[in-house]
């Protein structure tokens, strides 16, 4: 990757550019949207169920009269935060365990991989739902549960990448000069699985955002009155016949974010992966 600028990777193809653009807009609005919104997210600013285009409320209000534009702008923040933090924990811890399993091998590897198999045989959404029901509905619990849910998959992929590096001679050299296991894993192997880690992070984040939204919709994710798209879809569904925008707007935002992430990841994986295969990086 050294000869290739970040910009080259991000503008690899039109699809990637669109994806990166969508993700960038979402991230910016999540980070800085609060500076521009006209009302507070939970402020009862107007009359119930104003239609879009009403004076002072460009996207109308919801059932109890909160400004819909404000809630839409801020509605991605929490789920993006929970999903990204959760997946980051998953990928980093899964990565370290995966690389160590690949390097140390033997019994340790077997045990870890069987645990991974067991975890992967439990449907993800069921697992998360059970945990949320069991440990209570809060953002820390949700984050940790997301992390645990996404770790085994990431672990397995990163382990397989590390397996291709372990037999190489530079690892043998490190062992022979007496580097500790930790040193070999962190110094020698981890830099060589970095590409996979980045791609894993991006892929799993989009799926985690969907999962968090789905949980919120089911009433297991983020709790009211925090603005959240999944939650907003749930709240709007009762009014869908006479105020369909209450469902359509947040659903549209969830889709654009997930589609954007998928496009961006695809391009990223292609740009990184193909170069690795060609030995050009």
């Amino acid at each position: 990757m050294s000869n290739k600028s970040v910009l080259d990777v991000l503008t690899h193809s039109p699809g990637t550019s669109i994806g990166v653009f969508l993700v960038a807009i979402h991230l910016l609005s999540a980070l800085f949207g609060f500076l521009f919104v006209p009302y507070g997210p939970t402020e009862l600013a107007g009359v119930s169920l104003l239609a879009p285009g009403s004076p002072g409320f460009s996207l109308g209000t919801d059932v109890i009269g909160r400004d819909y534009l404000t809630r839409l702008v801020l509605g991605g923040r929490t789920s993006i935060f929970v999903a990204m933090l959760g997946v980051m924990i998953a990928v980093v811890s899964g990565g370290l365990i995966g690389v160590s399993a690949a390097y140390i091998g033997g019994f340790y590897d077997d045990v870890i991989m069987r645990l991974v198999d067991i975890k992967l045989s439990i449907p993800g959404i069921l697992f998360v739902a059970l945990c949320v029901v069991g440990f209570g509905r809060s953002i820390p619990v949700l984050t940790i549960v997301i992390a645990i849910n996404y770790m085994p998959g990431a672990l397995r992929i990163i382990r397989s990448q590390a397996m291709t590096q372990v037999p190489l001679d530079y690892v043998k050299s490190a062992r022979l000069r007496g580097d500790s296991k930790l040193s070999v894993i962190v110094r020698e192997l981890c830099p060589n699985v970095l590409e996979v880690v980045v791609v894993e992070f991006a892929i799993r984040t989009s799926s985690a955002i969907l999962a968090v939204s789905a949980l919120s919709f089911l009433g297991l994710g983020i709790s009211p009155p925090t603005p959240d798209w999944g939650l907003m879809v749930y709240e709007g569904i009762q009014q869908i016949y006479f105020a369909p925008w209450l469902v359509l707007f947040p659903a549209f935002l969830i889709s654009t974010l997930v589609i954007g992430l998928n496009f961006a990841t695809d391009g990223l994986a292609n740009a990184l992966g193909l170069d690795a295969a060609r030995g050009l990086d």
């Binding site: 001679d169 043998k172 022979l176 007496g178």
Partner: peptide, 25 residues
């Protein structure tokens, strides 16, 4: 190798066939 002393490890060195694989990319 892991159980050998530091000095012993220093005194015996190996050079591998494929330099691209013996140097961490």
């Amino acid at each position: 190798g892991e159980k050998r002393s530091l000095d012993l490890r220093r005194r015996i060195q190996i050079i591998f066939q494929d330099p691209l694989s013996s140097l961490n990319p």
